[in-house]
């Protein structure tokens, strides 16, 4: 049993704390990510939750950079790099190959960015989910093509400046990838945020024990891409949740549940105005009042839907 490991199979409901989380590291220090990288933090906890019993497939993305350059790598788990559009198809191949060879007990983990998920990879992902492929797909969302220098993606918010929306900012809002995946009727969909690593850890632990396609959407603020000091990553991630830009929830077999900070915000009804989140970031420097209004209404509507669903689940 890994050092410091206290959770047991089937006992994932036990509250994870900073004390009882495994001390074993699968992501080695000194990787190639930028300072203050939220992905680096999230990935560390994802691998801890899977205890190394995993095969990872990764498309072109910041994670490719994190993994290092041949012949040196920063992870101690087996991994295959795969072309941009193929993440979920690659995972399908890993699952099929393991099954054909009678190898059991491994989690096939696909990890892709929002470009690789919302945009170029959505066809393969949707198909893998429709085929009920037994794998865990984690989208780490930094709301743009950050690895290629910050171009707009299907996840970049309305009003955000990027390399390909350089002056007036993006004119469309992001798509709700978790809702899209939920519409596939898969057994587990969750959102998470690198600023809440224990919530992320517990969700990965839970997803690990579910069979079928599991999808976790992880919010990872990007200091160089979004224009905030790299010391502020955790704060930005928290502000995203506190203002409702990100809502932490899980949907297990169709049952919706708010988790972690979002659950307590719902209890206390103390959602902050979205403006507090936007003003901290250079990418929103040219956002108009009208756009802020549109985004606030979008947040309000989604928050209300989540509260309604959470209420429905309880009643």
């Amino acid at each position: 049993m890994p050092n410091g490991y206290v959770l047991f199979e089937g006992d994932y409901a036990m509250k994870t704390t900073a004390v009882n989380i495994t001390e074993k590291e699968y992501l080695l220090p000194g990787n190639r990510t930028c300072p203050g990288c939220a992905l680096s933090l999230a990935y560390r906890y994802i691998l801890k939750a899977l205890e190394g019993q995993v095969i990872v497939t990764v498309p072109a993305s910041c994670l490719t950079v994190l993994h290092g350059m041949y012949p040196v790598t920063s992870v101690t788990v087996p991994c295959v790099n795969t072309p941009f559009a193929t993440t979920a198809a690659s995972a399908t191949g890993l699952v099929a190959g393991l099954k054909a060879l009678g190898k059991e007990g491994l989690t096939v983990l696909a990890v892709a960015g929002d470009g690789g998920t919302h945009d170029i990879g959505i066809q393969a992902l949707s198909a893998a989910a429709e085929r009920q492929t037994d794998f865990l797909y984690i989208c780490y969302d930094n709301e743009g093509y950050m690895n290629t220098g910050n171009q707009r993606s299907g996840s970049t918010p309305l009003g955000a400046i990027s390399g390909t929306t350089p002056i007036v900012g993006k004119q469309q809002n992001q798509k709700d990838i978790a809702a899209i995946m939920e519409a596939h009727g898969i057994p587990y969909v969750a959102t998470a945020n690198a600023s809440y690593p224990l919530d992320l850890y517990e969700k990965v632990r839970k997803a690990k024990m579910i069979r079928g396609t599991r999808f976790i959407h992880v919010f990872v603020p990007c200091s160089p891409g979004w224009g905030f000091p790299f010391s502020e990553t955790i704060k930005i991630g928290r502000l995203a949740v506190e203002t409702g830009w990100v809502i932490l929830y899980e949907v297990e077999d169709g049952v919706f549940r708010l988790t972690s900070a979002s659950e307590s915000i719902a209890e206390k009804s103390n959602l902050k105005p979205l403006r507090e989140y936007l003003v901290e970031q250079g990418r929103f420097k040219n956002i108009t009042e009208e756009q802020i209004g549109i985004l606030q209404r979008w947040v309000n509507a989604r928050w209300k839907r989540c509260l309604d669903r959470a209420g429905d689940s309880q009643s």
């Binding site: 690659s90 191949g93 099954k99 085929r131």
Partner: peptide, 22 residues
Amino acid sequence: QYIAVESEHSALAVCTSASMVG
């Protein structure tokens, strides 16, 4: 294992990854 994929691009991606586990 017969995988009815959604595209040829995915077909070969399934084959390459399955080949990598043996």
